[in-house]
Write a protein that binds this DNA or RNA. Structure first.
Lengths: 261, 261
DNA sequence: CAGTGGTCTAGACCACATG
DNA sequence: ATGTGGTCTAGACCACTGG
């Protein structure tokens, strides 16, 4: 069976499933708003696994017709599913089933891959940006350095089983790492950079957890819809002498992570 | 000046402020959707303090007219402000300015009031429910006890400067605390209950942080809109011998807390 | 009772991505 | 060129709250 046929057949299965889901009569509007009832059914199908991850849903107009509601009502249901990270809409393309909110357990003081490798099959780390610039206001406080100081800025994205899951901005005092770029580019490892600059140990000094909302950049990179709620984790790492050498600001989709301390 | 006049005058000031905010021309729709521009302006007024906390906004129809948009567009802007906890709508009543997302720093392993008392003027603890029942699935794991075991269930709400900020469900193994209710009712203190049952020390065994969305109960109690994003913190406390004696599930509005570890 | 926020409709235009 | 999701309108009915 060739690719095109497989795709067509799969898409047709999705359509049948949606039709089945939509065919049940609604409960009274007073009991639960229609858009929430639609949300419930789609969320169940999503969590139950009957909707394949990565599958494309019919268009909004089509969906509205299938569920016998106006497009706006349909959009309200879809919008909540997007906010929760179960679906992702791409303008001009379509709506796709995101990896369902698996929760990744992250143990503090363990490196990311260490915490995760038991759970996941494929973990990738993508380096999105590596430049030298002035320290951000937030990192200046964390690193205990003055505004205007030069830092090395590193933006990375962790992709687990094909889904972007964790976005980090790291800042390092530039004066400590003259050869950062050269070393980092060899194997994309910060630990290697540390070692090459004579830092054999490092420890986490403090971790702060807050909530917030995705900027449009964050949304784009994490393949989420705009203004999705996020969990933000900021932390400072120190060398053996207790001098700060790294400030990290990490962002997770709200329902995709469980931090354990 | 009597109360009614004061209220009327204050409300009129709010109206003038809103009119001023709305009078500026919009940027092009392509640059930023109108509803987001309205959101920006209201969020600024809210954060800048020009909108008094607790103030009531004009009705949606009126607001839509003032901002020269349809009611739906207006609602979209208001809805984002509600999701972020800056506004709160009460059906049949009106839309009110919530305490702006102050962030409360909570240090792990400190009791709530200890972490907070530096920041806040008035802290209240309201006991909402105190019953004996079967252990919840989540607490059963945390406490290491079997399903069906009896526990004491305690639901409390922390109110800081008049704003509900932190909602907790606590469960304690019933067999350990025969006199829980009697002791607790004297001064609303769990520590006192511990002491009365011969537990002089207790320590936090593990803390888990996740994100989630408010149930309709949560929303009502925390005076938030439905399905607002939350930060959830679950933790287990143990006695001196390391035996679990308390499981706590706490919920905060997403933007109202900063957890420090 | 009047006014509020919550829901829902039918229709329209736009910017965007893909073939 | 077509279809997609994103935005916006004008109008309607409902359930709820308060006086």
């Amino acid at each position: 069976m060739n690719e095109q046929l497989k795709t067509r057949s799969a898409r047709s299965n999705e359509l049948e499933l949606i039709r089945a889901i939509a065919s049940e009569p609604y409960k009274s509007r007073a009991a639960r708003p229609i858009w929430l009832q639609i949300y419930d059914r789609l969320a169940d199908a999503c969590a139950g696994g009957s909707l394949r991850q990565g599958a494309r849903l019919p268009g909004e107009n089509h969906l509205a017709e299938i569920f016998s509601v106006s497009r706006l009502t349909m959009r309200k249901a879809l919008s909540k599913l997007q906010q929760e990270g179960q679906l992702q809409a791409r303008k001009g393309v379509g709506i796709f089933v995101r990896r369902c909110p698996t929760r990744y357990r992250i143990k503090d003081n363990l490196r990311f891959s260490e915490s995760l490798k038991a759970d996941a099959d494929r973990i990738e780390t993508n380096t999105l940006e590596l430049i030298r610039c002035s320290v951000s206001a937030e990192a200046a406080v964390g690193l205990g350095i003055d505004r205007g100081t030069q830092v090395i800025f590193l933006k990375r994205l962790r992709v687990v089983d094909g889904e972007p899951i964790y976005l980090t901005d790291k800042e390092f005092p530039a004066c400590r790492f003259p050869d950062f770029e050269t070393i980092y580019e060899k194997n994309q490892s910060v630990t290697e950079v540390y070692r090459a600059h004579g830092i054999s140990q490092h420890a986490r000094a403090e971790t702060r957890v807050t909530g917030g909302f995705a900027t449009s950049d964050d949304s784009r990179i994490l393949k989420l819809s705009d203004r999705t709620p996020l969990i933000k984790v900021s932390s400072t790492n120190c060398d053996a002498d207790g001098v700060p050498i790294e400030f990290t600001l990490g962002r997770w989709p709200l329902s995709s992570v469980e931090l354990v301390f």
